[in-house]
């Protein structure tokens, strides 16, 4: 190797690395689906991340278990009381539902839904913006596939599964991602629009004409099912401000119902909207 190249070896390596990555970036603009290289890196490293998180969670569980045992009797009493009131509540709700629908049809739907709910833990966040996506510990082996709907523990909409889906991990696009879109309507007046993220933990409701004066602050938004991805009737969020602008549409801010700080665990709905109807 010539002397000048030896002296500039490190600079050459830097140039080569930068060049490779510029090629990688240019291959993806405009952004489309994940490329094979990204999928390969995700598949290789997601089990490592999964393992590390599980390891530290186990250590945490041992520590928590110690404190839990200390207060076991007290906790048991509290839990019994809680179960009792929950059973009462459950009975009342079932009775109310029974009065609205035929019992047989309702039971079929409930059992069908129950088999298709998959509990998952969050094992990773999006390093570029935490409000864009999360990684969950369920993958193709658990029956997870693209476009499955993800809910929080209270049944509020969190997002949907997007690619890549690894064997035991998958990525969930949150509704707070600016590139997401959910077809919704307001529960009070049935005004339809599209909810998209603002990238800062909140959402915006798009395409509501400025002539429309029915939508108000505190209105609840639920999925309409028109997008063919999210089933109808899932609570999405609450309108927190409606601002009149000079443009064709209102500037409407929405607070999602799911709480980012207490997102874990989540439920993956292993059923498509068409099957639910």
């Amino acid at each position: 190797m010539p002397l000048f190249l030896k002296e500039r070896k490190s600079l050459l390596i830097l140039i080569v690395l930068v060049f490779i990555q510029l090629v990688l970036i240019s291959l993806q603009v405009p952004l489309e689906d994940n490329n094979y290289f990204e999928r390969a890196i995700f598949s290789v490293f997601s089990p490592i991340q999964h393992g590390l998180v599980s390891f530290f969670q186990k250590i945490g569980n041992i520590w928590n278990g110690y404190f839990y045992l200390k207060d076991l009797k007290k906790n048991n009493t509290n839990l019994r009381e809680e179960i009792f009131s929950l059973k009462q509540e459950n009975d009342l709700l079932r009775k109310a539902l029974n009065s609205l629908q035929e019992e047989r049809v309702m039971m079929e739907k409930l059992s069908n839904l129950d088999q298709n709910i998959l509990a998952a833990r969050i094992i990773g966040l999006d390093y570029s913006n935490v409000y864009k996506s999360v990684i969950i510990n369920k993958g193709s082996l658990d029956g997870v596939e693209k476009n499955l709907v993800v809910l929080d523990k209270h049944g509020h909409l969190v997002g949907r599964v997007i690619g890549p889906v690894a064997i035991k991990e998958s990525r969930v696009q949150l509704i707070t991602d600016p590139e997401s879109g959910v077809s919704v309507y307001s529960q009070a007046d049935r005004i339809q629009g599209i909810v998209s993220g603002d990238g800062r933990g909140r959402c915006v409701l798009k395409y509501i004409l400025s002539t429309n004066e029915e939508l108000k602050k505190s209105d609840s938004l639920i999925t309409s099912g028109f997008d063919g991805i999210f089933p109808r009737g899932i609570p999405v969020g609450e309108v927190i401000s409606v601002v009149q602008t000079t443009s064709l549409f209102h500037d409407i801010r929405v607070k999602p119902y799911f709480d980012f700080r207490h997102l874990d665990p989540v439920a993956v709905l292993k059923i498509h909207p068409t099957d639910m109807d």
């Binding site: 490190s10 990555q21 970036i25 993806q28 490329n35 490293f45 997601s46 864009k132 991602d177």
Partner: peptide
Amino acid sequence: GEIFGACFGAGCGLIQDAFSLGVFGVAGL
């Protein structure tokens, strides 16, 4: 040193990109 730093940085950045939504390679670069 800088050679290891550049290679290691590329690796770490690409892992970060793989776990993020967006253009793959931005954090890598």
